[in-house]
Write a protein that binds this DNA or RNA. Structure first.
Lengths: 225, 225
DNA sequence: TGACAAATCGTTGTGCACATCAGGCGGGGA
DNA sequence: TCCCCGCCTGATGTGCACAACGATTTGTCA
């Protein structure tokens, strides 16, 4: 946390804390069941409990933590049966990104995408569940720019971070075929690039939609064992 | 506000305050631009600023108010150009209600619906923009039970209250044909009942979707004058 | 030795005093 | 008369002390 508050407003600092905590939860630095201390977090981020409680309240609304009076603030469990509804909604909403306010990519975007594809190729050689999840988050944030519909982006972001922990939990328990996952992901990105170069944003959305749906089915198959 | 806190937990009381303020904003008791005082609201609801600030923070995330340091908490403007994206997303998501976890209605539900239809018929005789909006809210909450997908319900509820003020603002400015609106709404409810009695929840969703879309088009036509 | 009850500890929730900030009002000078 | 600077007011944001609550531990009695 290099305090580089150069020109940053206070509101931005709070948003940064929120994003940081969300990252820690979704990367399982704070695993399900972990207890977050308001005082400790306030000390770490150089503030007091009052602003920290606002951040935690937002995390609670997103369903990532749960605060109980007298007990503590606990990281919620990533249960596949409870998150199935969210996952299926995410599938459908991803399909809408090519329909509602699609944004044609510029050359900068295509360059970024190529960088992400290169990182995905590197995953096959030396990838860990954690580094793969970090890459997946970057890809998500990048592809989110393909729609200008702000409410849709907000909902998709919410659903993404609600459901993303499922994969990493299973991956750490060695219940997924990592090499298969890496290969499928690289293939998806290449397909997206092809669709993008042909200017077919509807196709891009459908490719994402299909892969999210298939990814969920693989997770369900693994949990049925 | 009859303090009937019989068996209600503290959390429920806060939720009730949130719903009450949301209602006041969407019924234009607090019109766009109105300033909400944390201290005054805390006094009215018999609490202090701290819990009230949490409620206002949630309203701010929903986009209904905006808090600015040193200025105040202001009810946001209901601008049709800014809410167009939310409206179009709401149209698509309403169509999904018949697809994601549809719930077959029971006899109690059908009885409730008939009561709403009767109220809609009464609107044509003696309806005001405000009472019509109250009826519309009750209809929305009732029809929301037709899907069991909790994330979808939350998003739909959010989008509904974000966009609902548009109609009431125009209606109060006498920029909508009230009798036409009442008639269309009654017709919609009757169509929904017919689809419901035939057990076709997909049709119910499409009927709602179509009417929300057409309602928005009527609003746009009026604002283009 | 077991079971029950009371106390203790740590946590989140609340209330209040103060800091911080933006806008408006008024006075003074050109 | 106009403009500008500084104060003043009222708002939200923050920090702290205390209340409320739940889990655990400890002590006592049978």
């Amino acid at each position: 946390m290099g305090d580089a508050d150069s020109g940053l407003t206070v509101k931005d600092r709070h948003a940064a804390v929120y994003i940081e905590l969300r990252q820690r939860i979704c990367l399982l630095d704070y695993p399900p069941g972990a207890q977050l201390s308001e005082i400790a977090l306030a000390g770490e981020f150089g503030t007091s409990r009052t602003p920290m409680r606002r951040v935690l309240a937002r995390l609670e609304e997103e369903g990532l933590v749960q605060s109980v009076h007298g007990v503590g603030t606990i990281v919620t469990d990533a249960d596949i049966t409870e998150l199935e509804q969210a996952y299926r909604l995410r599938v459908e909403l991803t399909g809408l990104t090519g329909q509602l306010d699609p944004v044609a990519p510029d050359t900068v975007f295509l360059t970024q995408l190529q960088g992400l594809i290169d990182r995905a190729a590197q995953m096959i050689v030396s990838g860990t569940p954690r580094s793969f999840t970090e890459l997946d988050m970057d890809v998500f944030q990048t592809l989110l720019h393909l729609t200008a519909n702000e409410p849709l982006r907000q909902v998709l972001e919410r659903l993404y971070y609600q459901t993303k922990r499922l994969w990493l939990v299973k991956a750490i328990k060695a219940e997924v075929d990592l090499q298969e996952e890496y290969g499928i992901f690289l293939h998806e990105l290449q397909a997206i690039r092809i669709a993008l170069e042909s200017g077919d944003l509807m196709a891009v959305a459908q490719i994402q939609r299909a892969h999210i749906s298939m990814s969920f089915n693989r997770l369900r198959k693994q949990s049925a064992i």
